[in-house]
Simulated assay, not measured.
Amino acid sequence: MDCLFCKIVNQEIPANIIYEDEHVLAFYDINPQAPFHALVIPKKHISTLNDISEADHTLVGAMVGAAGKIAKEQGFAEDGYRTVFNCNTHGGQTVYHIHLHVLGGKAMGWPPYQETLKAPI
């Protein structure tokens, strides 16, 4: 499989790993969008959120739980942080192995971009 994140899981390419357990792995994002930006990935390859089966629900919960642990360890859980899953092209997904972005260390605005949104007619 030619999946970047599977190669990280299999230690074929390096990553700055900050959390690991039997189900998930977390590492710093190479293109940070906040003072703290890490990715939490499952060790099992799942391409998109659309490919999650009922059997994977516990695994996705483990990803969210890891995000909370990381936020506490990094010291910004109480101030707040953002978690984001992107799905497919329009959702901004660029690596097709599900991953949860964990962003913290600053106040986040909403919406996350300033583009003018048009309401449907």
Rank of each mutant, 00 (worst) to 15 (best):
Y96M: 09
R82T: 09
D79Q: 14
G109I: 00
A62G: 08
G104A: 06
G80Y: 05
H37P: 04
L25A: 08
K44F: 07
L59Q: 04
H57W: 01
T48S: 15
E22S: 14
I18H: 08
D29R: 05
C3W: 05
P32L: 06
I18L: 12
N50W: 02
G105D: 04
V102P: 07
D2G: 14
K43L: 11
E20P: 07
D2W: 00
W110Q: 07
G91D: 10
T116E: 14
G61R: 01
L39E: 02
K69Q: 14
S53F: 02
C87G: 05
H90L: 08
L39F: 15
I46Q: 08
F5R: 03
K7T: 07
D2I: 00
E73R: 12
A107Y: 00
M63A: 14
L100S: 13
A107T: 11
T94Q: 08
V102F: 12
V60H: 13
I17D: 08
H45A: 12
K44A: 14
K118F: 15
H23Y: 14
H101Q: 07
H101I: 00
Y81A: 13
L4P: 02
D51S: 06
K44Q: 15
V64Y: 05
H23A: 10
I98G: 10
M108F: 15
N31F: 15
Y81N: 10
N88I: 05
T116K: 15
I121Y: 02
N86S: 15
E73F: 06
F27G: 06
D51M: 02
F36D: 04
I41T: 09
I46L: 12
N86A: 13
E22T: 12
C6M: 02
I98T: 07
P32W: 01
T89Q: 15
V84I: 15
I46S: 11
F36C: 04
R82H: 09
N50A: 14
S53C: 07
L59N: 09
P42E: 07
F5W: 09
S47Q: 10
I98F: 04
I30H: 11
Y81L: 08
G68P: 00
L39V: 11
D29L: 06
H45D: 13
G109K: 11
A38K: 04
A77V: 01
L117D: 02
